[in-house]
């Protein structure tokens, strides 16, 4: 088993105050290993995006702890967290988030600019990232002139331009048709395979999730299943209730049942499986990105 990269213990996250209090996460414990590809699956409002935000250090848990390479992150200063996100993480979002008026190249350069990399160096690295996603001929185009698939590829280039350890992808195919989505996914898995970048994909698309080595199902702020062998369960008092709720609701939770997955942890083997790509839109995912 490879080294643990991100480890979460008893994560809880609640929003709002007393009366209008909403618990997005109710105790999540998991380990993510280097080089893994992990899908976090769940319906809208299940807490999957919240979990990703916490793992990506974009937000702080109300309770619980996240360690990165064994180092607790709770007491890290904002400056440190910014540096980690900037240098170690890459982000791919459902709605791209590009500066539409800027050129493709400048969009890819953004993380390097924030990091304070010099002009020549960042130009060189951005061009090389664009080559990886096969878009270096479009580098001087305006971002708004690209198609959806091209935009998402630019975003992937932006995510890898800093040579990150982890890519967090929040519904990366959500705004794309299935054929284009497939290409994006293949690109992400290629990066996972060839560069050893850990992939954490948040999605409600079971087909996409099935391509990952590991699926973590989230429901009502708890993990209901985790295909990982060393999946660790929450050890707090709500454990029983959690399982009861999980079982009782399992039947009407068609798209999130991990049981269907019978693949092994072999990446190549998994990618060889030619799953027909269904783009299942179970519900309008308004709350999540």
């Amino acid at each position: 088993m490879s080294k643990t990269l991100i480890s979460a213990r008893g994560l809880r996250k609640s929003y709002g105050k007393r009366n209008s209090k909403f618990e997005a996460l109710r105790g999540v414990t998991l380990n993510i290993h280097e080089g893994e590809s992990v899908a976090i699956i769940g319906k809208s409002g299940s807490g999957k995006s919240t979990l990703m935000h916490l793992l990506a250090l974009l937000d702080k848990p109300t309770r619980g702890e996240i360690t990165l390479n064994g180092h607790p992150t709770a007491r890290l200063r904002a400056h440190k967290l910014n540096t980690i996100r900037n240098k170690k993480f890459g982000f791919v979002f459902q709605s791209f988030f590009m500066n539409a008026n800027d050129t493709v190249l400048n969009n890819v350069i953004l993380p390097l600019k924030i990091a304070g990399v010099g002009y020549r160096e960042r130009h060189r690295r951005a061009v090389s990232a664009l080559k990886t996603v096969d878009l270096d001929d479009k580098r001087n185009n305006k971002a708004s002139d690209l198609s959806g698939g091209q935009k998402q590829r630019v975003c992937i280039a932006r995510a890898i331009v800093n040579d990150p350890k982890v890519i967090f992808a929040d519904e990366p195919t959500g705004n794309l048709d299935s054929a284009t989505g497939e290409k994006i996914i293949n690109l992400l898995f290629k990066l996972n395979r060839e560069k050893g970048i850990t992939l954490i994909i948040v999605t409600h698309d079971q087909d996409l999730a099935n391509k990952c080595e590991r699926q973590i199902n989230i429901k009502d702020g708890r993990i209901v299943s985790d295909t990982s062998a060393d999946a660790e369960q929450d050890d707090d008092g709500d454990e029983e209730i959690r399982e009861i709720i999980a079982e009782s609701e399992e039947d009407d939770d068609e798209d999130a049942t991990p049981d269907k997955f019978e693949g092994d942890n072999n990446i190549d083997g998994m990618l060889d499986q030619k799953h027909p790509v269904h783009h299942i839109n179970i519900d309008e995912d308004e709350e999540d990105l």
Partner: peptide, 12 residues
């Protein structure tokens, strides 16, 4: 959104 992106990508 742009500010959000900048901050997510590590701008202080």
């Amino acid at each position: 959104r742009e500010i959000g992106l900048d901050k997510a990508l590590g701008m202080s």
